[in-house]
Nucleic acid binder design. Structure first.
Length: 430
RNA sequence: GCGGGCGUCGCCAAGUGGUUAAGGCAGCGGCUUGUGGCGCCGCUAUUCGGGGGUUCGAAUCCCCUCGCUCGCCCCA
């Protein structure tokens, strides 16, 4: 293809889809505001070092998925592959943590160099929250509920919440050793990928999709059993909290997330509508990260939700229930009025009238084609507007407009151009 | 990075070696220079993602390349 086109995995968002995005974002913004989370926006570009130190050198995200380059000053820069590291960096840099706990949310594009597939692009978008300075099990519950309730409010049903505890780093170290020892005995029964991970990142073998590996793991030592008493107590408290709120969840002791900073609570919300990339929202606790990035030791928890995947799920929900809340969010909106205008005089009056109506808060489509009335009415009808506001030279001459309902057979009415309030009243009703 | 499927108009597509590349939707124009939703008529791909090859002849076969898609990997 010789024609100029967007880079692989980089997707244009056109008005029709963006309308849905904005509806979702509006709900999310409202939801966060009510929960006391403030918005933060950080640069798309950060020092490569931030992600190496934050996410972990051994992770796939850092090892093979980052968009990194050297700028003209020979600094190594990276397009952010996730949001948490940047938010923590910003909080530390601006001393926000000395003002107490911070409840923050963000939305924006992230970049990962991967092979695109359903629900996965190279530039994708996340909405996320980070609660810095929250230590209690109750804060885990609140943060998970924040995600769960947002999805419920958007009208996405059929989601499953899975949780696990990764314990403290000592718990994990001990467990890692036990797991590796156990798996080493059975190395030949593992698939090739898992064999390689035995050396690099053994915990990730747990969520291998290979059925034989999964079967083998049935007998393996489990993470839950490796937790110290404090960790399991904490995990039990989180579960009790979720139960008390009536939020259904499933324990999944194979759930290990791919970013090194997670400890204790880890969770994912998945949908069966998405094919292989089923995770809509994922997150967990990261008590060590703030300190690791040079800030004061600060416990924290957060999650991120994938916009593209959420929209896929929403569209499926809208299809399944055309009258439900998801369908309302996803449906396109039509203008309140379509202004049919023709003739030199009428066209200039039409522009002024459209402007006046818009100033009153109405959505007005002004036909600029100068085409015949027949054509303009056809377009008015297709626009989905409830009203056609008709302005020809006759009306302009008399300083009035005719209002014609498009959705029913009632009579047209005539309103003086000076009576904007009356006109708005009519256009708003029905 | 690895494997499978696919690539014909803005969208959905028929065509699978023989020369004029169906059709539908959308768009534009007309019947209708003052009233839409229906109908009818007309227009809209010198070209089949791109490049090369085989052939008298290719959208149809072969090679390369780009892209899309599904799965693995990984994660949102």
């Amino acid at each position: 293809m010789n024609q100029l086109q967007s880079l692989r995995g980089m997707v244009d968002l056109l008005p029709e889809t963006l309308q849905r995005w904005q509806a979702v974002e509006a709900v999310a913004r409202q939801h966060f505001l009510r929960s006391g989370f403030g918005e933060i926006r950080t640069p798309l570009l950060e020092s490569t070092d931030l992600f190496c130190r934050g996410i972990g050198e051994g992770t796939d995200v850092v090892g093979k998925e980052m968009y990194s380059f050297h700028d003209r000053g020979d600094r190594s820069c990276t397009l952010r592959p996730e949001g948490t590291a940047s938010v923590v960096r910003a909080a530390v840099q601006h001393g926000l943590l000395s003002q107490g706990a911070q409840k923050l949310w963000y939305a924006g594009p992230m970049f990962r160099y991967e092979r695109p597939q359903a629900g996965r692009q190279r530039q994708f978008h996340q909405i996320g929250v980070e609660w810095l300075g929250a230590a209690s099990a109750r804060s885990d519950v609140e943060v998970i509920a924040l995600a769960w309730d947002l999805l419920a409010q958007l009208g996405v049903g059929g989601l499953a919440l899975e949780i696990n505890s990764l314990g403290t780093s000592e718990d994990r170290q001990a467990y890692r050793a036990a797991l590796v020892a156990w798996l080493e005995q059975r190395r030949d029964q593992l698939d090739a990928d898992s064999q390689a991970r035995l050396n690099t990142n053994p915990l990730r073998i747990l969520d291998s999709k290979n059925p034989e590996t999964q079967a083998l793991l049935e007998q393996a030592p489990t993470l839950v059993d490796a937790l110290c008493p404090e960790s399991s107590q904490r995990f039990a408290a989180v579960q009790e909290g979720l139960t008390a709120l009536g939020i259904p969840f499933r324990l999944n002791d194979r759930l290990v997330r791919g970013l090194d900073y997670y400890g204790h609570t880890a969770f994912e919300i998945t949908s069966d509508q998405l094919g292989a990339q089923a995770t809509v929202c994922g997150g967990g606790r990261y008590d060590g990260l703030v300190g690791q990035l040079g800030g004061p030791a600060t416990p924290a928890i957060g999650w991120a939700l994938g916009m593209e995947r959420l929209l896929l799920v929403l569209e499926a929900a809208a299809k399944a229930d055309p009258m439900g809340p998801a369908a309302r969010l996803v449906s396109a909106r039509a203008p309140d009025a379509y202004l049919v205008n023709r003739g030199e005089r009428a066209e200039s009056v039409g522009l002024a009238l459209a402007r006046a109506l818009r100033q009153q808060g109405l959505t007005v489509e002004l036909d600029g084609s100068g085409a015949s009335f027949g054509k303009q009415f056809k377009r008015a009808d297709r626009s989905g507007a409830r009203w056609a506001v008709v302005l020809g030279d006759e009306e302009a001459e008399r300083s009035e407009a005719r209002l014609k309902p498009l959705k029913q057979q009632s009579e047209e009415s005539t309103v003086a151009l000076s009576e904007i309030a009356a006109m708005v009243g009519l256009l708003r009703c029905q």
